[in-house]
Design a protein around this nucleic acid. Structure first.
Length: 400
DNA sequence: TCTGGGGTCCTAGGACCC
DNA sequence: TCTGGGGTCCTAGGACCC
């Protein structure tokens, strides 16, 4: 299943400063100038000319203006970015069917099977970069390695507008001198913990026993980083991955808001999410309310429905109930942002059956599932919902 | 000083089932 | 009747990524 590749044939393709590059492509007077895409409050993307002054994504507008006062600010045009992304992904899929999108501007491509028909990975990547530049007008960086994670590290190192292969057999020489922050999953908190123990490079990390990392960072993160530091990453490129949640949030400023104002924001947010659910042909079962307060603390509250839905009214009812439950916190801390996301998604053509059961008849479940399978075929049954007649509690059973 | 909007995955306790 | 192990789901929060 996870046989080790003999050659570096996983590509990580990453558009450079994506939003800013689209703006520089569409407005020629912006070419060569520092460009910041954002609404003013925060930097969504910065061109490399702006990055040269220290401007970074997610930076506050205040800080960005201090570092680069002469930058040109451009309001985001999400529609243009979506279209550019689709055009680039069309080039990806024309290269190989094994494309796994990671976000609007990056993807993994497995070109391992193309050597005899098309050529070696470096040649494929070179063609890919030329096509994206010629056909879509955007610069793109590609990293090539035997594993997904190292391909991504390689593209990070090669940015901007670069191409870097880490040949098979040279991975640890490439990896070990790098700072630990290059590893996927090492953010500010983990970085600080590692530095506290004198670990600054991937090589120093790799020298630690796994058990030491597990006790330092927890089982999942510890094992994960230990594996990456030794260049172990068996995950294949998965073309079929689907989104696991859909969400929308909205900042509402620091002044006090009436309950009616907050409700109006909630209605708009739920409506946006519900529309995206329906246009994506998905149904959701869990509604998550995300609130941010004056002091920048955040909370989440969630509730799972017995049966999936994409109806605005049903999702809104849950969202309103969750919000009402938090009224005290909202009054104390002052609300500055409201978000809704939905998870536990299924396709909207999934067969949904609600079987009424009397309490204490759980042992009949197998028989009921057999009946459902007989009627709809095994593949249709992804989850069975039992509603107890008396208490409406909802035990949920996975596909056996 | 000012901090958006879109996501993923993990942890941990409690409820519940077999 | 009591106990325990094994497992899943729900919920809230945290870390991280782009």
């Amino acid at each position: 299943m996870c046989s080790v590749r003999e050659e570096a044939s996983i590509l990580h393709a990453d558009l450079d400063s994506f939003y800013a590059s689209v703006e520089q492509r569409d407005q020629s007077e912006l070419k060569g100038r520092p460009v910041i895409v954002g609404g003013g409050g925060v930097v969504l993307a910065a061109s490399y000319e702006a990055k040269a002054f220290g401007v970074r994504g997610a930076m506050s507008g205040y800080e960005a203006r201090r570092l680069c006062p002469h930058a040109v600010w451009v309001a985001p045009r999400m529609k243009a970015y979506s279209e550019a992304s689709e055009a680039v992904f069309a080039v990806f899929r024309d290269t190989t069917p094994l494309v796994e999108g990671l976000s609007i501007d990056e993807a993994f491509l497995d070109v391992g099977g193309l050597r005899r028909l098309v050529g070696p990975p470096v040649a494929i990547a070179t063609t890919l970069r030329a096509r994206v530049r010629d056909e879509v007008g955007l610069p793109i960086t590609v990293g090539i390695a035997r594993t997904k994670f190292l391909a991504k590290v390689a593209s990070d190192v090669a940015k901007p507008d670069g191409l870097l292969e880490v040949p098979a057999g040279t991975e640890l020489d490439f990896l070990h001198p790098l700072p630990v922050e290059r590893l996927w999953g090492v953010g500010p908190k983990t970085s600080a913990r590692l530095h506290n123990r004198g670990i600054a490079t991937v090589g120093e990390l790799a020298a630690l026993p796994e058990a030491a990392l597990v006790s330092m960072l927890g089982p999942a993160a510890g094992r994960h980083l230990h594996a990456l530091a030794h260049h172990r990453d068996p995950r294949p490129v998965e073309p079929g991955r689907r989104r696991r949640s859909i969400g929308s949030q909205h900042a509402i400023g620091r002044r006090r808001h009436t309950r009616e104002e907050v409700d109006a924001v909630l209605v708009g947010t739920v409506d946006r999410v519900a529309r995206r659910l329906r246009s994506g042909h998905r149904l959701a079962r869990t509604v998550v309310l995300r609130l941010r307060f004056d002091d920048f603390t955040r909370i989440t509250r969630s509730h799972s429905l017995p049966v999936e839905t994409a109806h605005t009214d049903e999702l809104l009812a849950v969202a309103r109930w969750l919000l009402a439950e938090t009224q005290e916190l909202v009054d104390q801390r002052g609300l500055t942002a409201v978000g809704i996301s939905v998870t536990n998604l299924i396709p909207d053509d999934a067969v949904q059956l609600v079987l009424p059961f009397a309490k204490g008849t759980g042992s009949r479940l197998d028989a009921a599932l057999d009946e459902v399978r007989d009627r709809f075929g095994t593949k249709s049954v992804t989850r069975a919902v039992l509603l107890h007649a008396e208490d409406r509690s909802v035990p949920v059973l996975p596909d056996p």
